[in-house]
């Protein structure tokens, strides 16, 4: 069965995000009443797995070994 894993990688709480801060400033300059902005990277990975559980485990391993850097990142995995 072919699955699609949607991996979302964000900066860990406490790791400053200067890009998001700059975007927030720009939004406020445009008149939007914005309290905060956070950035994220999203990767959609397509692969075969026996079932959803296996697909999720595989995607999580991809995050641990490449897609995220555990020192500064958190990630979420959605399998479909």
């Amino acid at each position: 069965m072919t699955y699609e894993a949607v991996v979302r990688v964000t900066l860990k709480e406490g790791v400053l995000d200067p890009e998001a801060k700059t975007i927030g400033k720009s939004l406020r300059r445009l008149g939007f009443d914005v309290d905060g902005v956070r950035t994220a990277d999203e990767y959609v990975v397509e692969f075969d797995a026996a079932d959803e559980e296996e697909a999720r485990a595989e995607a999580e391993e991809m995050c641990e070994s490449l897609l995220a850097n555990p020192t500064i990142h958190d990630y979420t995995v959605e399998v479909r």
Partner: peptide, 17 residues
């Protein structure tokens, strides 16, 4: 070297962006 875990830590974007 950081990404390879040969030394510890990671490099994030400069605060200035």
């Amino acid at each position: 070297l950081c990404e390879a875990d040969v030394v510890q830590g990671a490099y994030a974007q400069n605060l200035s962006a």
